[in-house]
Design a protein around this nucleic acid. Structure first.
Lengths: 156, 156
DNA sequence: GTGATTCCCGACTGAATTGCTCTGGTACTG
DNA sequence: CAGTACCAGAGCAATTCAGTCGGGAATCAC
């Protein structure tokens, strides 16, 4: 269980998809431009998200990515474990029993804590997260600035 | 806020110190042997822990490290931030307002989540963690094997 | 069909970080 | 003073991060 910028990119992008859920797929180019990260790097992240069945791609013009499940069925933990391939490859994978016997605490103490963080993140799904007031405020602010830039779209 | 093996080493070592709290300092050589990591690496970690006022060293024979505060006054978050110097240096440090205006979710969504994890880890202190049944079970098992190896100590 | 758009896939790279070693100190105690 | 233990810094192999490049394959508009 790692918690790095890689996971942040993935979570933010997934939230982006969740917002546009039901309103057509979102292209990686848009996410790339908005988040300020390279398109190829995003492609690598989404390849993992796709392998884990979290998103599905729609090819061709007007295509992009959309959520493969409902927003409520995708947890933050799902996203992070998908991209941050968990390397809990501890030195002693359960077999070590600390046989020198003096003062020893094995990794079990840590994994106990790590599991709790994982369960905590598992309890948060995209739909619930988006419904939070603090998050809604950001989205509303986004929507306001989006209306201001609507002249660029010229379709609707 | 990162969550890697570095933090795990530190937390596990600090739990080790908390268990032996009041029973004399613990040497790094012991922790090094038991956790299976190098002594110099441990020294680096403990240098950071000491700089943050979490532990204090006792020099000379019979010396070692002990907690600088009570176990209840040290949270897991304290330990992790001490060794895992937080690099939440996001690209746009609050000033970016995502002005291309289309579909954009900034780092604020992530930091909202990151803050919650931090607060969650802040709420757990060493004393409370050690008092948990699952952790106590491990300690008791340790103590049993320690009694088995008591012949090596020959002092008590 | 043709071409444009978009996803898909793999390899490669420079920089940073991790985990660790080595060397040489300094402070304290018996 | 000799041994134990902390303190400090350079350095190093492996891994990861973030990104680049180049080429495919599916889909839609025409």
């Amino acid at each position: 269980m790692r918690l790095s910028t890689k996971g942040r990119y993935a979570v933010t992008a997934m939230l982006d998809l969740a917002i546009h859920d039901g309103k057509g797929p979102v292209t990686l180019a848009d996410i790339s431009q908005c988040q300020g990260i390279s398109l190829s790097y995003l492609e690598q992240l989404f390849a993992k998200l796709r392998r884990d069945g979290l998103v599905e791609g729609v090819r061709g013009p007007g295509g992009g990515y959309r959520l493969a499940k409902t927003a409520a069925a995708i947890s933050i933990a799902d996203i992070i474990t998908a991209v941050d391939e968990k390397v809990d490859a501890t030195l002693c994978e359960g077999k070590e029993n600390c046989q020198d016997g003096d003062r020893c605490l094995t990794h079990e103490l840590w994994s106990s804590l790590s599991t709790q963080i994982f369960e905590y993140l598992s309890a948060i799904n995209l739909a619930e997260f988006l419904a939070r007031p603090s998050v809604q405020a950001i989205i509303e602010r986004e929507r306001a600035s989006q209306a201001g830039a609507e002249k660029m779209v010229m379709s609707s």
